[in-house]
């Protein structure tokens, strides 16, 4: 990573009437990396992206994207970015090829460049066979690849991807991310929103958003390591009951169900956390297996959305 910032935002804020969609967001996203926005629906991910693209005016604060003041020169910026919207926004009644040619022409690629790039991308995304199929009749994964192709044809320096993989099977998701890493290798910066932990894990940098505000940020590893909490993994046949019992205790910050396991987040001030938890369950007679584990991103997320991450 170089020292240059692709995106820097200070106090970026957006209100819709009384709704505070984005709340004084400060961001510094370096060039040539994949940066993730992680957060539940409605936390302001799309709104933030729209402000960074110059589609929405910030109520307060400012943003510099690729060195361009977004509020002042949105049209200059638009030549250098690509934005894959959350909702499929190509034309359902055009074929894949027609959609791609249209986008190429909008970005004023000369015909040769346009057709070469389309051919290359179609091959890379394994869509050659579907190039004459209507976009509206494609599957979720095919549309997603088509949409990504359409916004990368002009080789943008910065790519915004808003929940690109939400309608896509795991295998396609893996492929998709491989392609993103290829792009980063060529110097592209990618800002991607997601609510999948495994995807967030792959990002170089991550911002966890909660109700429009930045709840935590850093690299996934950094965040996991600096988590001011002890995580106890609990295996038990009665997860529900265990969870309810543990949550009554003030030293237990939260108990999250992860698959068949429970992750109890315990105050790091507690010197013997396992013994402490077992004491809490003794009366119920429920049998459990407990061990201290390294926190995962889910734990980070739970902590962040409880407002328990160090600033």
């Amino acid at each position: 990573m170089t020292g240059n910032l692709a995106i820097s935002a200070t106090n970026l804020t957006r209100k819709f009437g009384n709704i505070l969609a984005v709340d004084h967001l400060n961001l510094e996203i370096p060039e040539a990396c994949i940066f993730g926005f992680l957060g539940p629906n409605g936390c302001g991910k799309s709104t933030t992206i729209r402000m960074l693209c110059g589609l929405l005016t910030a109520t307060e604060g400012e943003a510099t994207v690729l060195g361009i003041d977004v509020a002042r020169h949105p049209e200059v910026l638009k030549r250098r970015i690509g934005y894959m919207t959350q909702r499929f926004s190509l034309y359902d009644d055009l074929t894949a090829l027609e959609n791609l040619r249209f986008m190429g022409d909008i970005y004023r690629l000369d015909r040769q460049t346009r057709d070469d790039r389309i051919a290359l991308l179609l091959e890379r995304f394994e869509l050659e066979a579907l190039s004459n199929q209507l976009a509206g009749t494609m599957s979720g994964g095919q549309r997603q690849r088509l949409a990504l192709m359409a916004v990368t044809l002009h080789e943008p320096d910065l790519l915004f991807l808003d929940e690109p993989t939400s309608a896509v099977d795991p295998e396609s998701r893996r492929q998709f991310w491989e392609f993103l890493f290829d792009m980063v290798d060529t110097g592209t910066t990618i800002l991607v929103t997601t609510h999948f932990m495994d995807e967030a894990e792959r990002c170089h940098g991550l911002a966890i958003l909660d109700k429009g505000a930045l709840a935590a940020s850093g690299s996934p590893r950094q965040m996991k390591e600096s988590l001011p909490i002890t995580v106890i993994e609990i295996e038990s046949g009665h997860s529900r009951a265990v969870r309810d019992l543990l949550l009554l205790n003030s030293k237990v910050v939260d108990v999250a169900q992860i698959g068949t396991l429970l992750h109890a987040l315990v105050d790091p001030g507690e010197a013997e956390p396992i013994r402490h938890l077992q004491r809490l369950l003794r009366q119920s007679g429920i049998k459990t297996e407990m061990k201290v584990v390294v926190p995962n991103l889910e734990d980070v997320f739970v902590m962040a959305t409880h407002g328990l991450m160090p600033a």
Binding site: L55, E75, K78, G82, S89, D92, M103
Partner: peptide, 14 residues
């Protein structure tokens, strides 16, 4: 209505 516009206005088209 179909959501095409959000993509279109993010391009340099005037």
């Amino acid at each position: 209505e179909r959501g095409n516009l959000e993509l279109l206005i993010t391009t340099p088209v005037t």
